[in-house]
Design a protein around this nucleic acid. Sequence first.
DNA 1: TCGTTGATATTCT
DNA 2: GAATATCAACGAC
Length: 199
Amino acid sequence: MIQPLGPASPFPADWFGLDAVTLAQRLIGAGLYLDGVGGLIVETEAYRRDDPASHSFRGATERNRAMFGAVGRAYVYRSYGIHWCLNIVCDAGEPGSAVLIRALEPNAGLEVMAARRRTAAPRLLCAGPGRLAEALGVDRSHDGADLLAAPFSMTAPNGPFALSAGPRIGITKGVDHSWRFGHAGSRFLSRAFRTGEPG
DNA sequence: TCGTTGATATTCT
DNA sequence: GAATATCAACGAC
């Protein structure tokens, strides 16, 4: 569990101007809430414009247009026809980057999440991008929404945290990058990391 | 605990 | 038509 060291402080909006890999690491430990329901980010993945695994690789389309818009906004897409997945758009000079939020350590609105997920096991509420979106109530209506304005809110990480890194999950291209990051040893991850070292 | 598989919508070829 | 940034149910051990 991530132990709070003090009161939550606002998330620094200028971090959204960082490149996706850096932001993906800094987001670990940050709070993410929708209508007050959510928790602390424990797992992320970075996707860049020049990255064959990224939805933005072949340029802007109707689906991915949020990735080419303002930073700090949500990019929400349908995964495998069933699930919604939530990204945070960022930009280090060239549009088309985002960080996929893969898992939260839930700490607010546990009852609401349990009802939406039809399970009360905290470990299974937000462990995976599809589960996380279902628990928070994220859907297409949130595509393009500002993560620092209602109904969303974010808090700064109360770190530093020990990070794990490894290859991204579920992709067939760009597998040579270790752009998946997590809070080392967290039990709320979608999957364990093979090594404990950041990369 | 592990591996396999079906469900399902949207995008791109 | 094929592929997909996933999940849960199920059966074999």
